[in-house]
Design a protein around this nucleic acid. Structure first.
Length: 281
DNA sequence: TGAATTGTTATCGT
DNA sequence: AACGATAACAATTC
């Protein structure tokens, strides 16, 4: 559930108190979530200091003082919690960091899908992630190239972390609506103008969501208010904020998908068919 | 109670 | 072979 803006918010929130801490001990009650293995990660972490906290796609990256890294992926329901900040002992604690200051950090995860990975080579660990959509090198041309290189429906293409890192179900739907594109549109049929609009939509919706500290949909991720600004996600049958047409929910690539049928027409308004056929032999 | 939820991976087909 | 579509899966909530 947490996507790029939520992960970015978490990183910003935890950075001041986490960076500089030295790990006294690390423990888990769910070793399946730890890679390469709990004993190896425990010894890699013990007595190390955290020198920086960053984000790559939906991964939280803890930089350690021996030039190794700990990657945390929240998947659906993962979250961090400082023991001292919790009014009572949190539910679903899976892993615990104890620091030399005496502070304790919990990794809580109701659904146990979250993953914690230690690596000595960050580049290898993140090798199959696509570009950061908010980075300078993610230009309109870069997106145009991505769309033309493939021939896939836009929705699963944008959800694919190896294509672009950080988009999930919410912001994919939001970006496509803002760009006026139907999620089932085939990527190589997106025009240059549409591609440029999609590029702008992706970046502006992510920036807006970060400014709003992410989307709080349910119990999983509290604290954000981007849900007030969403235009399609979770708004089935509610009026489109652009044209008033009821938002429709459909299923694309086994994912719940939300569109405005008027703002995001299936084939655009032009060319509804193509005749070209491969004649290579 | 079981349908819904998401990102990743394995598998199947072209 | 490379790519794209699809199914399965992790486990829990409401």
């Amino acid at each position: 559930m947490p996507e790029l803006p939520e992960v970015e918010t978490i990183v910003r929130n935890f950075r001041p108190r986490l960076v500089g801490q030295r790990i006294a001990s690390f423990n888990t009650s769910w070793p399946k979530s730890i890679t390469p293995s709990f004993p190896r990660v425990r010894s890699a972490l013990t007595d190390r200091s955290i020198t920086a906290l960053t984000r790559r796609g939906k991964f939280i990256v803890l930089h350690l003082n021996d030039a190794s890294w700990l990657l945390v992926h929240l998947r659906m329901s993962g979250r961090f919690e400082w023991a001292a900040d919790a009014p009572r002992r949190p539910n679903h604690i899976r892993s615990t960091w104890r620091f030399t200051t005496g502070e304790k950090l919990y990794f809580c995860d109701a659904r146990k899908f979250g993953r914690i990975t230690h690596t000595h080579d960050l580049a290898i660990a993140t090798a199959d992630l696509g570009p950061e959509p908010l980075a300078r090198n993610f230009t309109p041309t870069a997106l145009r190239t991505i769309l033309k290189q493939r021939r896939r429906q836009l929705k699963p293409l944008l959800l694919d972390q190896s294509v672009i890192a950080g988009l999930g179900n919410i912001y994919t739907d939001e970006a496509l609506h803002r760009a006026g594109l139907h999620p089932a549109t085939t990527s190589d049929r997106v025009s240059a103008t549409q591609s440029e609009r999609l590029h702008e939509s992706i970046r502006s919706v992510l920036r807006l969501a970060i400014r709003n500290h992410g989307t709080s949909i349910d119990w999983i991720y509290p604290g954000g208010w981007m849900q007030k600004r969403l235009r399609v996600y979770g708004r089935t049958n509610e009026p489109c904020r652009t044209c008033g047409t009821p938002i429709k929910s459909l299923r694309i690539a086994q994912r719940g998908t939300h569109i405005c049928p008027k703002c995001q027409p299936k084939n655009g308004h032009k060319r509804t068919r193509r005749r070209k056929r491969s004649t290579k032999g």
